[in-house]
């Protein structure tokens, strides 16, 4: 017990020191100056979109964003491989208050998610924000004991879970095939960037929303409402 206390105090001191070092580093004037931000602002014309964040995510740093979507998909596969997907879900009557409040909010949330997707090219929003809101819609739908449309079809699930990555790859391959001398391989040119970004955003939002929903349901196709959150039925 005594060694445990010494260990805890030591770790507390060490983590306080780490936090202090991190704060000291971040508060240095140098680190607060936008280094990459100015470059992005200067090149915004070529990106095909007018939102800085979307330009970074889906044009200048699109390769990284693709791999982040891959991380999501891998997490989804990991969570789903831990549980049997055949587990039957007991149907139980849902809480009427939950049903009323959440049921009335869901169409508004769907609209908000689609608005965020649409706004992504010019304003704050985009595939990650939209996917998060749409995923939350799906989670609420499961919580009130309803099915999310189309998720019971196995082929549809398989398509949606990878479409966000596949569109990225198609964009890269198309860019590679049509690459002229002097332009970068595996990328889209300034002229066609807007179209590709829109396609990637729509597909990516669908994948992100579905992955978040799938992670919540944890391998089951529905949820046992009365047993609460992520508990197994």
């Amino acid at each position: 017990m005594r060694t445990r206390h010494i260990f805890e105090y030591g770790v507390a001191l060490a983590s306080l020191g780490l936090g202090g070092l991190v704060a000291a580093g971040a508060l240095r004037r140098r680190s607060l100056e936008p280094a990459a931000g100015d470059v992005v602002q200067g090149l915004l014309e070529q990106s095909g979109v007018s939102s800085v964040v979307t330009a970074v995510l889906l044009n200048f740093r699109a390769y990284d964003t693709m791999l982040e979507v891959v991380v999501l998909v891998v997490a989804f596969w990991g969570a789903w491989s831990l549980h049997p997907t055949e587990a039957r879900v007991h149907w139980r009557p849902s809480d009427p208050i939950l049903m009323r409040t959440v049921g009335g909010m869901l169409p508004v949330l769907w609209l908000l998610g689609i608005y965020l997707l649409w706004a992504g090219t010019s304003r704050p929003g985009g595939e990650f924000a939209s996917g998060a809101v749409l995923g939350a819609c799906g989670v609420l739908t499961l919580l009130i004991g309803e099915r999310v449309p189309a998720t019971q079809f196995r082929p549809a699930r398989k398509v949606v879970v990878v479409v966000g990555v596949v569109v990225f790859m198609v964009a890269g391959v198309a860019g590679a095939l049509s690459a002229q001398g002097g332009s970068e391989v595996w990328s889209y040119t300034a002229g066609e960037a807007r179209g590709w970004i829109l396609a990637i955003e729509v597909a990516g939002a669908a994948t992100i929303a579905f992955v978040l929903l799938g992670l919540f349901s944890g391998g089951r196709e529905g949820l046992d409402v009365e047993s609460g959150g992520g508990e197994a039925p």
Partner: peptide, 11 residues
């Protein structure tokens, strides 16, 4: 992107 990835990693 980090927030969404953190959520999925947590899940």
């Amino acid at each position: 992107t980090g927030i969404v990835v953190a959520v999925s990693a947590t899940a």
